[in-house]
Write a protein that binds this DNA or RNA. Structure first.
Lengths: 159, 159
DNA sequence: AGGATTTAGTTTGAGTTGAAACTAGTTCGT
DNA sequence: ACGAACTAGTTTCAACTCAAACTAAATCCT
């Protein structure tokens, strides 16, 4: 018969078991959503979203980097970055200068205000990842990175 | 004097090295973006986005599940699910019935058209994850799951 | 040199995301 | 029994995401 296990009453039914694949998918989707959540809260508390903060950190590390390179580094579509850069520029944290050698290209740089925000800080995604990685066996971290890289690669090659 | 390594000319400079923490962040952010990309392409080719498809799969597995439970299962905020459900309902793939025992609650179910889409299928995130997991050492998969779970938990407890 | 192709970046459009504010229904406390 | 507290779900809002279409600039090819 095996009709069972349907939560006909939302409450009181424990989380149903899913297969290992759905389990893993739930983890990686859920991870993305948690990053999103952390980002929203950072904006409320510090005025910068996650992607905005990441841009500040990376432009701080590589001044003069053009938007295309930065998008590649962040693994986002260039058009996504446009909006993030626009909002950071509106807040006077970042500047776009024209590349004298190639007028199509912009060169990104932090303003003084932007540089003031370019520092590690608690309650960020960076800090959380730092903590987890520091408290895990290096070999496990390596395995995780390998698996994640393969998923990234496999998904990426569906081009 | 170590001023070096600035890509003053976007082209021809290899990807700069980042620390292990930023490296890992790049992977998990990037994974989220790849899922997003796959989702967009699925919509173009099959008419369903990733979250929409996941809802179909899960409601198919657990008919009568209420939105709150489904949100919990998908690790998304309930308000996020509202829009996804609205769009699926507009497409006549899903129905919301009122729970006779608790009028606040809805009970979700697939229409005949929705049930027709509830099947595994290539070129989905599910298929890609399946492939990677099948081709990896089980112990590595376990390590990855453990690390990811800890990141999820650490980020989650920043409540 | 000059038109065709390629490349860098932005704009527009639809979907997803979480948080806060809101509505409506249920349960609790006295 | 009845008002207070709680719960389920939706709406509204700003930001992010990719893709496709577009602009402008550089390079390529005769």
């Amino acid at each position: 018969m095996s009709r069972a296990r349907v939560p006909e009453n939302g409450r009181s039914v424990p989380l149903p078991p899913l297969g290992p694949v759905l389990e893993f998918m739930r983890l990686i989707w859920g991870l993305g959503h948690l990053l999103e959540r952390t980002s929203k809260r950072m904006k409320a508390s510090k005025g910068l979203t996650g992607p905005q903060r990441l841009v500040i950190r990376l432009v701080g590390r590589f001044p003069g980097i053009p938007p295309g390179r930065l998008a590649e580094l962040m693994l986002v579509h260039p058009s996504t970055l446009s909006g993030v850069l626009r909002r950071l520029e509106r807040k006077k944290l970042l500047e776009r200068r024209r590349d004298p050698n190639d007028a199509r290209r912009s060169l990104l740089g932090l303003t003084a205000a932007g540089r003031a925000l370019d520092s590690p800080s608690p309650f960020t995604v960076e800090a959380a990842v730092e903590r987890v990685l520091a408290g895990s066996h290096p070999s496990h971290v390596e395995s995780a990175k390998a698996i994640l890289s393969r998923v990234v690669q496999t998904l990426g090659e569906v081009d």
